[in-house]
């Protein structure tokens, strides 16, 4: 009886782990946001990648771009890095570190601790771009969602 209980418990724990993993893997959509005054209504994933890799340094109207990132441990950043940059967040951080250490980063992103802070910064700077979870951005009146990454 004890063995059967233990086996059932093991199966249950494994099942919970699988469920937890799937939840983490899928997650909720990521919203890419810009300032309300930014004329861009939507941005393609390729263009967002260009911005986040410094391929583009200013908006079409000449306003310099300010890039915001979440902290390295954040799950939203992990999803964004995989979907947009095609790399793990750790590898992206390494690339930036290499550019910064050589002082060759043209426009490195600012890392923010919370989504609320990113929304606050994007809302107050015309050239800013950031990303947060969709639920955090959908009701914000101060920023515009330009892409939703599923």
């Amino acid at each position: 009886m004890g063995r059967i209980s233990f086996s059932l418990l093991t199966v249950l724990v494994l099942a919970l782990n699988i469920v937890a993993f799937n939840v983490e893997a899928t997650g909720e959509p990521v919203a890419v946001i810009v300032n309300k005054a930014n004329p861009a209504e939507s941005l393609s994933e390729a263009y967002i990648k260009k911005i986040y890799t410094n391929g583009v340094l200013s908006w079409p109207d000449g306003v310099p771009i300010t890039i915001y990132d979440l902290s390295l441990q954040d799950r939203v950043r992990a999803a964004f890095s995989e979907k947009i940059l095609g790399m793990s967040a750790d590898r992206v951080a390494e690339e930036w570190a290499h550019l910064k250490i050589t002082n060759h980063a043209k426009n490195p992103p600012y890392t923010m601790k919370s989504e609320a802070l990113i929304i606050r910064r994007v809302a107050s700077e015309k050239g800013a771009i950031g990303y947060v979870s969709y639920s955090a951005a959908k009701n914000s009146q101060d920023v515009r969602i330009v892409n939703t990454l599923q």
Binding site: Y110, T111, M112, K113, S114, A116, L117, R120, R121
Partner: peptide, 10 residues
Amino acid sequence: LEADQEEIRN
């Protein structure tokens, strides 16, 4: 407050 500190740190 945390946001302000974060801004200063960054």
